[in-house]
Amino acid sequence: MTAEEIWTIEEGEVRTPGIGHIVITALLIGIGAVVGAFGSFTLPLGFGVNFFWPAIAVQNVGGIWYGAWGIIAASLFPIISNGISGTPVYVSLAYIPANAFQSFMPAWGFRYFKADPRLKSARDWWVFLGTITVGNIFGAIWGPLVVLKGFGLLTAESVPLFVWGWFAGNEIAGIVFGVILLKALSGVVITTKTFVKRWWA
């Protein structure tokens, strides 16, 4: 299957949202919550921001493979993982735009540029790196600047540390875990019925 074919819906092919997508979303929330909480307990910076946050990979690949469903999962699971590690519920809720965007960027990029989720060509790699970086930059600005500053948890002067912490924590973990997952599992995922070619199916 070429990258082009992966994202094209053949004539007569029916792809509709189904129970499978709800189940996938739920399972992604489950994995994200566990991996996320694990990250929060190992290398925390505070308020749910971590120096190394593997759960970002679940957000990235979730969006790439499952479109809007992955984005929904990405928005929701940090509420559970942050909650377990002691972040107040409203801080978690306020993070939603950041988490959604971090998942949206690669989801959009792979569809728009018709990149192969199995990361076959250099171009696929650039799409992956580019989109997750843009996503993380947005997240890193939204999280510390809008949320933490907004809740008065940080002073203006200490925001940069958190911006860098958030960005680096996501970027490195995202590349390491994201690449591994995409390379290992994309081949199987793209052949399944639940794989999302557009946004919802």
Partner: peptide
């Protein structure tokens, strides 16, 4: 890093059964 593959793979397998 290795942990995440079986975790994800198991979940993908299960998602079909759940559905």
């Amino acid at each position: 890093v290795m942990y995440i593959i079986p975790l994800m793979a198991l979940s993908l397998r299960r998602s079909e059964e759940f559905t």
